[in-house]
């Protein structure tokens, strides 16, 4: 009896996602009925292309290049942002400094740095990774800074009474208490990192990667490939955000998801 109940509960969680994806595919397919295939190929055509395309070396290189940049840039940004946020939470002066710095950086779209960085470092990974870091460190820093500033005073005092040193306060109270904000910050930062990665590749930061590939497909008017890359770029982001980061969240914040048994 328990099995069907489990199934219906999973379904309850899944159906809004399924409906959202379905709506988009439906709009696409309906539009495809009215347009010639070279302007807008239908869903089945692109899905077929997807099945064949994901084994092509060209595509795999493209994917590998993008993921490499992401895997270097995004964690560095998280680490940097987390560290700066923690420091700012502990020192009021540094908090004001960091907020001003972020306010300035936020008013400049990250992609604007590309020409500057290309002149400085040349084409390739360095300008793109730098843009990822600029774009994604500050949601992390802000989130962690706010959490550190708003830390529960009693939690700190309990530790002091129990004999905690400064370092122990940091490790045993500040860190676990701000952990939920690390995760929230990391989720927002991921969106920024992904967007700026693809955009940087498109505007010419490098001659490889998913962003470069979609731009190339557009230049040669290969609509099927353009749509294929849109689908892939979306799918990878959704996978990271809803599967990898969500899994991490539930693992690290186990105590938040525990059922009450009062």
């Amino acid at each position: 009896m328990a099995v069907p109940k489990m199934k219906s509960q999973t379904w309850k969680k899944v159906w809004p996602y399924a409906a959202a994806v379905g709506t988009l595919l439906l709009i696409w397919q309906v539009a495809a009925f009215f347009l010639p295939p070279y302007l807008l190929p239908g869903v089945p055509t692109v899905l077929e292309r997807l099945a064949a395309g994901i084994t092509e070396p060209e595509f795999l290189t493209s994917l590998k290049e993008s993921l490499f940049r992401l895997i270097i840039g995004y964690p560095s940004a998280c680490l940097l942002g987390g560290l700066l946020g923690l420091l700012a939470g502990l020192s009021r002066g540094f908090a004001v400094y960091l907020r001003s710095l972020i306010a300035i950086l936020q008013s400049i779209p990250p992609i604007t740095w590309i020409p500057f960085l290309i002149i400085l470092f040349g084409f390739g990974n360095v300008p793109i990774i730098t843009v990822i870091i600029i774009a994604s460190f500050f949601p992390m820093a802000l989130s962690v800074m706010n959490a550190t500033e708003g830390i529960n005073r009693t939690h700190l005092e309990v530790a002091k009474v129990l004999g905690a040193t400064k370092g122990q306060l940091l490790r045993k109270v500040y860190l676990p208490e701000t952990l939920p904000s690390f995760i929230t910050g990391a989720q927002v930062a991921f969106g920024n990192a992904w967007r700026s990665l693809i955009a940087s590749e498109m505007v010419g930061g490098a001659s490889s990667g998913l962003g470069f590939s979609i731009k190339f497909a557009g230049e040669v008017a290969q609509m099927t490939d353009v749509l294929l890359y849109i689908v892939i770029i979306g799918m990878i982001a959704a996978f990271f955000d809803h599967v990898v980061l969500e899994w991490l969240k539930r693992r690290v914040l186990k105590w938040r998801y525990i059922e009450g048994a009062k």
Partner: peptide, 28 residues
């Protein structure tokens, strides 16, 4: 540690289990 205080609100760490909360002072 000679003088322990018990706070108004229980002030337990929500991310630690009961056992880990009790052991906190010893761990420190």
């Amino acid at each position: 540690p000679e003088r322990m205080m018990i706070f108004q609100e229980h002030a337990l760490y929500p991310w630690l289990t009961v056992g880990e909360n009790v052991e906190m002072g010893l761990e420190l």
